[in-house]
C-alpha cells in the first residue's frame, strides 16, 4: 500500500469539506477521482499535500503517517501536485520553473534532460517567459516541473481543463508513458470518459464523501451518473 487515508476529514475554517474519506492506492496504480464541482476532489489533494490540516494518522504514505506535515516535508517524502490552473511562476523562465521543481533535491531519474526528452517543445522554449507559452505548453511545464521533484506519487488536478482535445491527448500520452515506468498517480478529472480510460480504479466523490468506487473498466455509465449527481 503506497497511500492510504482513513476517515480523513478536512475543513476550510468552520466549513467541513471532506467527511471521513477512506482511500487506498497501491504502488504503480493510477487512480482517478471524479465528481461534480465542489465535491471535494481538489480539497482531498490539498489535504494530502499538507496545504490543509489533517490528523497525523489519517494519511499514511509509504508506511509512515504524514497527515498534517508541512508541505515541504511531504514533497521530500515523494508526493507532488500538479495544481489546478498550472500555477507557473510568471516572473521565471520555463527552465527556471522546471528547476524550482527540483528545489527539494530528491534524487531520481528526472532531470532537465529527461523532461526535455519527454516534452521536446520545452527545450526550444526553455528561455522564454513561462507566460508566453500556449495553455497546452504551460500544462507541460507544470507536469514536467512536478516530475523534476522525482516523486513516487504524482497528483494531477484538472489537467485537461481548458485545453484543446488534441493537446489533452498529448499530455495524457506523456503521463501514460511516465506511469508505465512505475510512477503512481492520482488523476482528478471532470471528463469522466478520460478518467475511466486513463485509470485502473476510480473513486467518485459527492459532497465530500466517496459515493462510488471500483475498477474503471467495470463501472457502468448508470452507476457513475448516479454516484456523480446523486439521482
Amino acid at each position: 500500500m503506497l497511500l492510504q487515508t482513513r476517515q480523513l476529514s478536512a475543513f476550510y475554517g468552520d466549513f467541513q469539506a471532506l467527511f471521513g474519506i477512506d482511500f487506498q492506492l497501491e504502488a504503480g496504480e493510477i487512480v482517478a477521482i471524479i465528481g461534480a464541482n465542489g465535491a471535494g476532489k481538489s480539497t482531498f489533494l490539498k489535504t494530502l499535500m499538507g496545504l490543509l490540516a489533517a490528523p497525523h494518522e489519517a494519511v499514511r504514505f509509504d508506511g509512515r503517517a504524514i497527515g498534517g506535515l508541512a508541505t515541504g516535508r511531504i514533497v521530500e517524502r515523494g508526493i507532488v501536485l500538479v495544481p489546478e490552473g498550472r500555477r507557473l511562476f510568471p516572473s521565471l523562465s520555463v527552465e527556471e520553473n522546471l528547476r524550482m521543481g527540483a528545489y527539494g533535491g530528491r534524487p531520481g531519474r528526472w532531470n532537465l534532460q529527461e523532461v526535455y526528452a519527454l516534452f521536446p517543445i520545452l527545450r526550444e522554449k526553455r528561455l522564454a517567459p513561462s507566460t508566453s507559452l500556449s495553455g497546452g505548453q504551460q500544462q507541460m511545464v507544470a507536469v514536467a516541473r512536478a516530475l523534476m521533484s522525482n516523486p513516487k506519487l504524482l497528483l494531477c488536478d484538472e489537467t485537461s481543463l481548458g485545453l484543446a482535445p488534441i493537446v489533452v491527448k498529448d499530455i495524457y500520452a506523456a503521463l501514460a508513458r511516465v506511469t508505465g515506468e512505475g510512477l503512481s498517480a492520482i488523476i482528478v478529472e471532470q471528463d469522466v470518459g478520460l478518467a475511466q480510460r486513463a485509470s485502473s480504479r476510480l473513486y467518485c466523490f459527492q459532497e465530500g464523501r466517496v459515493s462510488l468506487t471500483g475498477r474503471s473498466d467495470e463501472l457502468s455509465r448508470e452507476q457513475i451518473s448516479h454516484a456523480y449527481f446523486g439521482i
Binding site: 514533497v75 501536485l81 495544481p83
Partner: peptide
C-alpha cells in the same frame, strides 16, 4: 510570484 505554488515545490 505565488506562495502556494512555491510551497508545493517544497519551499518553506
Amino acid at each position: 510570484d505565488d506562495i502556494d505554488a512555491a510551497q508545493l515545490m517544497g519551499v518553506d
